[in-house]
């Protein structure tokens, strides 16, 4: 038992533990902070830390998407929205924090209870890692011939999923255009007079 535990504690696990602590600190900072500009920055840090976490756990494709889209795009979008709205979160004393706290504690306890049934971290014999994931690894080269298995699953085995994703992105772009389109361009510049 002890030998197995010693075997499982390697460099990956050590980096993982440290990154998780950093992620925890930045998430709690987002909860506490009131200044929206700092919140935007810390959420960028949070995304970048999770990208580092993904590299550590071998998900390199996910990591560069998260670094580009999560840390880059999202931060720019939030900053753009702050430019058009307000910079500071107002303190609302009559807003009760009690009911949200109860909801969060109950949900968290349920999820925490559920983790006891989960397989150990990096377990090669867990159900997720033995069945369908392994099939893709074994058959990929004969079926598709692309060395990167993530690419071949994304673009070939699950090509229709990716097509659906593209449709979602297209629809989202269209709705942003409708919401912030030509009609509001004049009003955005004169917004100071309204308030």
């Amino acid at each position: 038992m002890i030998e197995e535990a010693a075997l499982q504690f390697d460099v990956t696990t050590a980096i993982d533990i440290i990154l998780m602590i950093f992620l925890l600190i930045s998430a709690l900072a987002i909860v506490v902070m009131r200044h929206l500009f700092s919140i935007a920055m810390v959420s960028g840090v949070y995304s970048l830390l999770s990208a580092a976490f993904f590299v550590n756990l071998d998900a390199v494709d996910v990591a560069f998407t998260e670094a580009a889209v999560g840390a880059g795009m999202s931060t720019i979008l939030i900053l753009g929205a702050l430019l058009l709205t307000s910079r500071r979160e107002k303190i609302t004393p009559n807003r009760s924090a009690f009911i949200p706290l109860i909801v969060v504690v109950v949900t968290g306890a349920a999820l925490f209870y559920a983790t006891f049934d989960m397989p150990n971290f990096a377990d090669p014999n867990s159900p997720a890692n033995t069945d369908v994931g392994l099939q893709y690894i074994q058959r990929n080269y004969d079926d598709i011939g692309v060395p990167n298995i993530v690419t071949s699953v994304l673009a070939s085995y699950r090509g229709f999923d990716t097509l659906g994703e593209t449709l979602v992105v297209f629809a989202a772009g269209l709705s942003v255009l409708v919401l912030l389109g030509v009609s509001s361009a004049g009003r955005l510049t004169g917004r100071e007079d309204e308030t």
């Binding site: 996910v62 993530v150 942003v176």
Partner: peptide, 21 residues
């Protein structure tokens, strides 16, 4: 396991489009 990577790759892109909306 490459399968969770693929699912999350899709989810990240969809996530940023919902954030934009």
């Amino acid at each position: 396991n490459p399968l969770p990577h693929v699912l999350i790759l899709t989810a990240i892109v969809v996530g940023v489009s919902t954030l934009a909306v």
